[in-house]
Each structure stands twice: as structure tokens, then as C-alpha cells.
């Protein structure tokens, strides 16, 4: 970067008109900073891996939630990693897969949206944002084939259609619009089962948050790579709603309440099943 500034003035890449994309600018000016453009690794890499993300639609928006565990092989690499982020004011992105790449990709995606907003003076449409994310995932395909896959779940409030929408992706950058609810990551099978039973049309925001928390508890119940709520350390899932008034992270108090409610319900059900049994299991 230093030598291109040698003449003193801003290099031509900066003053070339036409593009509102930060990723395109980087690809032209500093391609080594793009996640997909690094020399590929030959051996398999051991790196932290993030797991389950769930998202569901409710009346007036979406909820996105992610557990807090990252694993590396059979070890827990982190018990308080965050995997759900605001992409911009009206959308959220949650990422399962290789944690380091995922966090970098989210940072680049957030910047891409903000960059467009500053240069154009208006927000990208929700479909536009979803397509940008697909392009970025596609750029990561080389690393994905070596086991460093990143699989996001994207959702937001569509300001034109006045409704919440959810998009899922595959490692090749395929983009699929999901209806009602979806989950990605290693615990997604169990989370999807839970969502299927608990989701219903016409949920309000609080009920939807509760459904999301319960789906994560179900995923953690059966998937060792998904972390359950940790009431000892006070580590709760990251849950956010995106509505007409924007991205809002749900407070820990409300999550603690939801978790307690689910646990109480299950404890009662368990006791009712075994009236004579003790307290174990």
C-alpha cells in the first residue's frame, strides 16, 4: 500500500467512479485483504468451529438466535463466542462453520453494506443484501473445500414489502429464501424439529424469542457441539429481533426468563412421567 501512495495523492483506484461495493474496491486495490484470496492451505487445519443458528419469522419481523459454543475437534474452544451479528440496521446475520473466517466475513459484509449506504445515500434492498452475501460466500469456496466452510443464515426486515424474510445459503453460494423458520449448523437437525413443532403463524416478538430459545435448548440436548444456556456463568444465547424499528438484541433478563420457563416445564413433565422416581435423569 505504501508505494502506491508514493506520488502523494490518493491512488486512482480511490477516485475511479462507478462502484459502490467495498469488496470490488478491495479486489482491485488490495486483493490480499479478501478472505477468499489467500494462498490455500495444503494440510487440514484445526480451527474453532461455530455451530447452531436458528431464525424464524413472526408478525412484523424475524428473530435470529445462536448458541455460544465453538468447538475444535472434541474440545470446547469457546463457551461465549457470539455468532449472531447485526449486518446493518435492518438485517441480521448468523454464521455457522469455521469461526475465524466467519467473523472476518461478517466484518466484511457489515462494511460492504455500510459502504454502499454511504456512497449511494440509500440502503440496499433486502434481496440486494442477500445476493451480496451469496457472492462473498462463493468467493470462499476454495477454503470451504478444504474444510473451512462458512454457512450463514441471513434475515431482515424488508422495508418495501413490510415483512420479515429469511435466507439460507450453501457453501457454493447458493441462496434460498426460507419461509417461516430455518436453522443451520451441526445442531440444526434437532433445532428444525423443535421449530416445526413450536412455530405457528401470528407469533408476537416475545413468543418468537421463546420459540427460538427452546429450539436452541433442544439442539444442545442432542448435539454435543451446541452449547446449552449456562445459568452458572450467566451465558445465554445471542438472540436478536429485526423489525421495522431495526435490529434489537434481546436482553439477558428476558432470555434467562425464557430458559427458566422451558426448564420448569420440562422438569414438571419429567416428574409427571415418573411420579415415584427420584430426581436423577
Amino acid at each position: 500500500m505504501a508505494d502506491t501512495f508514493a506520488s502523494g495523492r490518493l491512488p486512482h483506484a480511490f477516485t475511479t467512479p462507478g462502484s459502490s461495493s467495498f469488496v470490488e474496491f478491495l479486489a482491485g486495490y488490495a486483493p490480499h485483504l479478501l478472505p477468499g484470496n489467500r494462498p490455500s492451505v495444503v494440510a487440514e487445519v484445526q480451527a474453532p468451529h461455530g455451530t447452531t443458528i436458528v431464525a424464524l419469522a413472526f408478525d412484523g419481523g424475524i428473530v435470529m438466535a445462536g448458541d455460544r459454543r465453538a468447538t475444535m475437534g472434541s474440545m470446547i474452544a469457546s463457551r461465549d463466542i457470539e455468532k449472531v451479528f447485526p449486518a446493518d440496521e435492518y438485517s441480521a446475520v448468523g454464521i455457522a462453520g469455521s469461526a475465524g473466517l466467519a467473523v472476518e466475513l461478517v466484518r466484511l459484509f457489515q462494511l460492504e453494506l455500510e459502504h454502499y449506504e454511504k456512497i449511494e445515500g440509500s440502503l440496499l434492498s433486502l434481496d440486494g443484501k442477500a445476493n451480496r452475501l451469496a457472492t462473498m460466500i462463493r468467493g470462499n469456496l476454495g477454503l470451504a473445500l478444504q474444510g473451512l466452510a462458512v454457512v450463514p443464515l441471513f434475515g431482515g426486515f424488508d422495508l418495501d414489502r413490510r415483512t420479515g424474510r429469511i435466507f439460507s445459503y450453501d457453501v457454493t453460494g447458493g441462496r434460498y429464501e426460507e419461509h417461516d423458520h430455518h436453522a443451520v449448523g451441526s445442531g440444526s437437525v434437532f433445532a428444525r424439529g423443535s421449530l416445526k413443532k413450536r412455530w405457528r403463524p401470528g407469533l408476537d416478538a416475545d413468543a418468537a424469542v421463546h420459540v427460538a430459545v427452546e429450539a436452541l435448548i433442544d439442539a444442545a440436548d442432542d448435539d454435543s457441539a451446541t452449547g446449552g444456556p449456562d445459568s452458572i456463568r450467566g451465558i445465554w444465547p445471542v438472540v436478536a429481533t429485526v423489525t421495522e424499528s431495526g435490529y434489537l438484541r434481546v436482553a439477558d433478563d428476558q432470555l434467562a426468563g425464557s430458559v427458566a420457563a422451558v426448564e420448569d416445564e420440562r422438569r414438571a413433565a419429567h416428574r409427571a412421567q415418573r411420579p415415584t422416581g427420584g430426581d436423577a435423569r
Binding site: 483506484a13 480511490f14 467495498f22 478491495l26 485483504l33 459502504h115
Partner: peptide, 10 residues
């Protein structure tokens, strides 16, 4: 904007 975003990203 490009200059600032690049710096903030790097």
C-alpha cells in the same frame, strides 16, 4: 469513504 473504510478494515 473508500480510504476510511479501507483503513478501518485493515
Amino acid at each position: 469513504v473508500r480510504y476510511a473504510d479501507l483503513r478501518g478494515y485493515s
